[in-house]
Structures are given as structure tokens and as C-alpha cells.
Design a protein around this nucleic acid. Sequence first.
DNA 1: CATGAATGAGTTTTCATTCAT
DNA 2: TATGAATGAAAACTCATTCAT
Lengths: 200, 200, 200, 200
Amino acid sequence: MMRADAARNRARVLAAAEVVLGEQGPAARMDEIARRAGVGVGTVYRHFATKEALYAAIISARVELLLQAAARLRTAATPKTAFFDFFTQIVADAAGRKSLTDALRGAGVDPKAEQSEQRTRMRAALTELLHDAQRVGAVRPDIDMPEVLALLRGASLAAETGDYPGPVLDRALAVLFDGVRPPTARPSGGNRLSRAAELP
Amino acid sequence: MMRADAARNRARVLAAAEVVLGEQGPAARMDEIARRAGVGVGTVYRHFATKEALYAAIISARVELLLQAAARLRTAATPKTAFFDFFTQIVADAAGRKSLTDALRGAGVDPKAEQSEQRTRMRAALTELLHDAQRVGAVRPDIDMPEVLALLRGASLAAETGDYPGPVLDRALAVLFDGVRPPTARPSGGNRLSRAAELP
Amino acid sequence: MMRADAARNRARVLAAAEVVLGEQGPAARMDEIARRAGVGVGTVYRHFATKEALYAAIISARVELLLQAAARLRTAATPKTAFFDFFTQIVADAAGRKSLTDALRGAGVDPKAEQSEQRTRMRAALTELLHDAQRVGAVRPDIDMPEVLALLRGASLAAETGDYPGPVLDRALAVLFDGVRPPTARPSGGNRLSRAAELP
Amino acid sequence: MMRADAARNRARVLAAAEVVLGEQGPAARMDEIARRAGVGVGTVYRHFATKEALYAAIISARVELLLQAAARLRTAATPKTAFFDFFTQIVADAAGRKSLTDALRGAGVDPKAEQSEQRTRMRAALTELLHDAQRVGAVRPDIDMPEVLALLRGASLAAETGDYPGPVLDRALAVLFDGVRPPTARPSGGNRLSRAAELP
DNA sequence: CATGAATGAGTTTTCATTCAT
DNA sequence: TATGAATGAAAACTCATTCAT
């Protein structure tokens, strides 16, 4: 019973921290996070030794979810779309957590042991999807992971820190993907960017 | 004559602030900035009433330079390349000032009167270059400013916050630009990404 | 149980602040007040959000005591002397807290909600005592609250900011009270001012 | 010509300081005083070595004026009224310079050499007027300088720091003076306090 | 285990005073 | 001599972290 309580508290703190960081940026206070979680500061510190550790845990949880999504895509989707779907999903995830990365970077969170292990797994997952896509000719062959990572990072940051309506993000991604595909994979005349659903 | 001294001090503070912010992020202390500039804290405050005001002045100066570059490109370069050159220049500028934007955003710098006026001018400059490029068929016609801004922001953020070797950034931009160009403007077989000069 | 500790700390801070303000005037530092109270500055700020708030709390406590004294006098003393006793007590209280008012005014303490509520109660208490005294002919009938308040303020300020030996204050008050009484209430020949106990 | 300029500047600074202190209290800044005087801070410091020295000079000028008034009254008025007139004048002067004394005391201005010399002259002037009045029976004989000084200080402070409409101050002073007069000098039935001119 | 009061180093900002021009 | 830019000590206030209850 104790264990359950502790676990619930940990989860509550994590959730509260994500919200508060999104709202207040890197300046968010531990007191406030505790208040939102409905616990005392002491409890926050019982679960996360340090503010930085708490922030790192948030990232960790996020990345874990994305990794699961990557695994799912690899089995469920065709190599032709899996890479693009994953890319899109990461960006959508970022857009849904406005300015969180910002807050985390502002807080000076460094890649620690666990994080760098996750980083490795993330890279591996992405590499697989990329190579699969290249094998079936869905992605141009002269592109490589470093570029992909840079493009992914840029897209995520723009989605997270900017305030773009969904369709704008979609079209920006479409442009990006057009650049990523081999010319032959583009429908003749190009992928006309859709403007239908644009919000006012 | 004193005015000259004051102006020099102002410039020194601005320069020191840019450096220190780049190094230490939003947490940079006013004391440190003053020390680097070789002046007392009081002098920093004489020129910039507030930490936030100092940060705003840095952005302002940066944007001003870019606006001048835009004007220069419009006369000196052909519409075919001006847009891409400007885009590239902004990203290079961002790359050269690692984590400054970060620091600025972390400091909660708001778009103030002057800033928002600059924002307007920046949009105008970019719009001109974009339309010029579309007119001569260098940029696909179904792309519009919102997407361009999102792509630009993403590229700048990636360049600024990431630690990519130059060639990686170049290739990522090349991919992006391929997506921006109309299919007809791409050499058949695509723009082969160059790998020659890659740094270790 | 912690609450008891917190309350003790609050009281300590209040007491220390009263002392330090009396000694050093409005320029007293929060650090020093904390040191005297034997707590950290943070604790001072936990209990009083602001220097001004701390000062306001001191006044509040003082006035509360005087209000209790007024209530006591109304039941315990005869209307003939109660007014004069209360007046005297206020002045004595002021004399006992040298330069505190000074410090408080210097700090720009404004009448806030609670304060102005106290102010109202204080006026009410004084008004009752005044009217009682006038009803029994102990105070001239042509005097009214505004004058009484002005006289009281003057007497308190003199007592607080000046450095008068007790007998001097007593005689000054005696003169004042002679002016407040109806001529008939003065012993023929006036109230001879006592000089017996004068200190050097 | 230089001398005249310097003297004008000194006077300007003095005047500006009096105004600014009255408005902003002890916290008034030297910069602001200089600005109001239409000179640079450096000039303020040329005339007054220290903030405290400036404040002392203000008091000094004030007292000098009052001393001249005392001398004038001694020749021009009858002993019967001269004392009361002087007392009234000091209080009126205080009322006209709201919170200046406050500012000065708050600034920790100490009695310096010059000041204490003035203090002596002030006491002497008041003593003369008091004794003259006692000789002609206008002031009760059992009152002495210490009480008078205490009463005067109280009245001045009340006038300066309070916000009493003129008639209230007048009536308060009338009460005070009734206490100061021998019973025989009060018209039978007392000096009815006038209520005629009271402002709404 | 949870709580939240206490701690105090750390930061921003102010302002009297100095001094180069 | 006047000016006002520069100085930097001082002071208010914050907040991550600890620890008694």
C-alpha cells in the first residue's frame, strides 16, 4: 500500500512538473510544482534528488514513449511511411508540450548516463527507420543521420517554441519531406501543398 | 568627448553581454557581464535599465544587421539566389551565437514596441525576397510566408542550440532547400549532397 | 508542534524588529533584524513578505494593545479620569518606543486595510472616552475629536522623537490637560505644576 | 560674475532640495535634486559636501528665518502676545513645510556645530519671549522652558506630519494656549473655541 | 514517509560620491 | 567651474535544499 502511494506521488509530481514547466518556463519553482502535485516539497525531493534530476526524469519519460512508438511503427507500418510517420509524431509530440524543451534546456539539464543511453536507443530506432525507408526508395539515398537529426531537431524546436496553427506546421513538414524524398518519389508536378483546412 | 567614452562603454557592454550570455545562458549575472566589459555594474545599468532591457538591445542589434543584409542582397544578388542566401545567412548568424536566443527567451524578453517594429520589417524583407524568388521560378509557388517562417525558425533554433559541424548544417539546409524549390528547378537526379569537406 | 516553533519565530522577529528599528531607524536592515531574532533572513520573509509588511505588523500589534487598554479603562476607571488616563498611556507608550514611528513613517508604511480598520476602532474608543468625560464635565464641551487627535498626535510625536526626562513630559501633559478641562474643573489658582521629582 | 552664478546655483539647489524632500521624503535622490535645480550633480556636491550637509543647510536657513521673526516680534509686539505669536508662527512654518522635518530626521541629520549654535540662539529667543510674557502675567508662572520646548515640538510635528485643515490646528493651539495661560488670564467662561470658519 | 518551516548563498538593482573631460 | 558618466558598496528579496517534527 505504501508502495502504491509512493508511486502515485511520483507520477503526480512528474505530471505537475511538466505542466508547471510548460507554463512558467525554466524559472518554475519547486514549491509551485509541489503545490500543484498536492504534496509537500519534501516529497518532491524524496523522489527526485534535485531539480535537475526531476527535469531529466521528465525528458526520460517522454523519450521512452517515443521509443515505444518507434517500435510499434516498425512492425505495424510499411517502411515507406514509417520514417515519415515517426518524424511527424516526434514533431507533434513537441508541439503538444509547448516550451518544455526550452525550460529543460534553460535549466541546464545535461545528458546524464541514463539520458545518453536513451539517446543511443533513439538514434538506433531512427537509423533503422531511415535505412528501411532508403532501401525501399522512399528517402533519397544521399541523406544521412546527422542531417536527419538536425532537421528533426529544428522541426521539433519550431513546433514547441512557436505558436503555429496546425496546418502551417503540416505544410512546413510537407516541404521538408519533399526535400527528403528522392525526386522520383514525388508525384509529377510535386506534392501540391494543401490549403483546404487552414484556420482563420 | 565624454560622449565618445560613454558610447564605447555601451558597445563594450553589449559585446560582453553577447559573449557571456552565449557562454552561460540565461543565468548569466550582471556582475559578470560588467566584469567582462571592464566596467562597473553601475555602468551597465546606466546604459540598460534592466537585465531584460540589455537582452532586448542585443536582439535589436542582431536583427538590425540582418535587415541590412537583406537590403544588400536585394540589390546585389539575383532573385534566384537572394532568398536562399538570406535564409542561409540567418541560420549562419544563429549558429554563430550559440544559445543566445535561448538565453533571451529564458529571460522572458517580450516583443516590445521597437522589437515588434523590427519584426514587421523583418517579415517585410523576407516576403519581398520570397516573392521575387517565386516570380523567377526559384521557389515553388504553393509555399507561403507562414511555412517559410516556421522553417526558418526551426533551422535557426537547430543551428543555435545544436552543436553540428558546418557540413552537416549545410547538408540539412540543402535538403530543406530542395523541398522549397519547384521540382523543375532541381537538376535531374536531384542535388547530390556533397560529402567532401566533412569534418571529423 | 511545528506550528508552535513557527509562532515563536514570528514573535521573535517582531520583537527583534521593534528593537532594531528603535535603534537604527528606518534604515535598519532585514539581515540585522534576522540576526537579532536568531533566525535566517528567509524566515523573516516567510512571516512578513516585505519590509513594509513587517513594519505594518509592528504598528498593528502596538495599536491592538492600546485598544485593549481603552476597553479596560472604560470599565475600570471613572469617566472623569479615563480619557486623561488613556491619553497619557498613549503618550507613554510612544515615549517608550523612541523613534519607532519615525522608522515606520520613513519606511512609507501606508494605512492598509487592516490598519485602517484599526484606525477606525481607535477613533471609536477615543470618541467614547471623550464624550463620557464631557458628559461628566471633566472635559470642556467645546472641544471635539479633530482637535483631540491633533493634540494627541503632537504629544505622541514629541514623546517619541524627543529626549525629555519623564517629569518634563508630565508637566507638558499637565499644561495640555489644563487647556482641555473646563475652567471650572481647575482648582482655583490652577493646577500647580509639580517640580519635586525633576531629574537633572 | 562667477560669484553671482555660484550663489544663484547654491540658492537653487537649496530651494530644489526643500521641494524634493517635501515631496519624496528622506529617500529623495541627489540626482533628482540636481535635476530640479537645473544643474548637474557635481554642482550640488561643489556647494554641499554631503547629502547630510545639504539637509543641514536647509534646516539652518529655516531656523535663521524664525530667529529673525523672533527679533522682530520682540520690538514690534507687546510681551502679552509676542510669545503666543512666535509659537504660532513656528507651528505655521512647520505646517507649510509638510514632512520636511521628517525627511531630515529620517536622513539622520545630527546637530552639528553650526546647528547647535543656532539651537542656542533659538532657545535664548524663546526664553526671552517666555519670561516677558510671564512678567506681564500672560503666561502662568509655574511653566518653564523644558515644557515649552516639548509642547512646541509636539505642535510643530503634528502640524508638519499631519494633514489637518487650518481651523483644526487653530483650535488645537487655542486649547494648548488656554493651558499655558494663568486661569485669571482666561476670559470667564473660557475662550470659546471658534467653529465659524471650519471647512467642510 | 510526508510535511513545510528554516536556511542563507546568490542576484538584481539603487544611489551617494568621485573624477575625467 | 560645471557636468554627468562611472563606480561599487549596500540592501532587499528569492529559492533550491535540508531537516526537525
